[in-house]
Amino acid sequence: MSWLDVCDAEDIDLEDVIRFDHGDRTFAVYRSADGAVFATDGLCTHEQVHLCGGLVIDNTIECPKHNGRFNYQTGAALRAPVYDALATYPARLNNGRIEIEVIKSSNSKNNNGPPL
């Protein structure tokens, strides 16, 4: 069983993100405006800054260091200086608790970067 218990859903505000560390890995766990939950790698692909200090706007997370943006639902890099996509992980609500599955991740390969 690879689902990990993160926290109560209520522990994350709507349109917000928290940091979740597991072993030597760090994740960012999100709740969107409609209460859906998502998970990505915790560090920005640009300079390894924790995304939990960033701003969730609609379906994007803006990195606190240089304001690069990702779609936290797909991992796509949307705005320079981020260029490489962010790995995403399955997340779900289970009896009011948020769980993430950290073994499976999306491919975090370069997605050709943000537009001009």
Partner: peptide, 13 residues
């Protein structure tokens, strides 16, 4: 607009 975006990111780093 491109080179300066990267220059400014470095300035913040």
């Amino acid at each position: 607009p491109i080179s300066w975006r990267w220059a400014h990111a470095r300035h913040h780093t």
